[in-house]
């Protein structure tokens, strides 16, 4: 077993282990932190694939930006419930496991059945990456900047608190608060024990 293979296994186990915590951890702050571990280890995998620029972007954008944002989200929305996610009912977890296993089975079967090139070619340099962005993919690049701008504006518009003086309030909010329904029916698959 070469050193690279050992490295791969270590990183793979770290990614999957942390990923498992992301989807199962009850504490939402832990979830987000485990996500950080997953993403950082993916960055390591990127380095092993000689995509150093991407690794840097991954750390800066994801681990830096997105996770901070998600932590904010957790703090803002679960301050009353103590960061705890309610547990899914058992049958839902079972069904989810079946689905995930099916996905894994189908995708890995497809991978294993496909003849793949195992030989590596020279990884593109960051310079080549930048040139590609500004020549071949310049249109997509500009479209992306537009998309980010609209995402920012859209997020502000969606999440903006509508004050009483806002004339738009007259038309009613997009989602009306609704009195909780009587229990029962097919909607609630599990009893909301956190209430």
């Amino acid at each position: 077993m070469s050193g690279e293979q050992v490295g791969f296994w270590v990183v793979a186990l770290a990614i999957l282990g942390a990923g498992r915590q992301v989807v199962t951890s009850r504490n939402l702050v832990h979830t987000v932190l485990w996500l950080a571990v997953t993403l950082a280890n993916t960055a390591v995998a990127f380095v092993m694939l000689e995509a150093t620029f991407l690794a840097a972007v991954q750390v800066l954008l994801y681990t830096g930006g997105v996770l901070t944002l998600m932590l904010f989200g957790v703090m803002l929305t679960t301050r009353d419930t103590g960061f705890v996610d309610v547990r899914s009912p058992l049958h839902r977890g079972f069904a989810g496991g079946v689905l995930a296993a099916a996905v894994m089975a189908l995708v890995s079967a497809s991978i294993l059945r496909t003849p793949l090139p195992e030989a590596r070619v020279t990884a593109p340099t960051t310079e080549a990456l930048g040139a590609s962005f500004l020549t071949e993919h310049v249109l997509a690049f500009e479209a992306l900047s537009l998309l980010l701008l609209s995402a920012v504006i859209g997020a502000v518009v969606i999440a903006r608190r509508r004050d009483a003086g806002d004339p738009r309030e007259e038309r009613g909010p997009a989602i009306r608060p609704r009195a909780p329904r009587a229990a029962g029916g097919a909607v609630r698959l599990g009893a909301p024990e956190a209430e």
Partner: peptide, 17 residues
């Protein structure tokens, strides 16, 4: 999402095998 993924799996499995 569950139904969606399951259906995609079905189509994918049919296409692949």
């Amino acid at each position: 999402v569950y139904v969606l993924v399951a259906a995609m799996l079905g189509v994918g499995a049919y296409g692949a095998f």
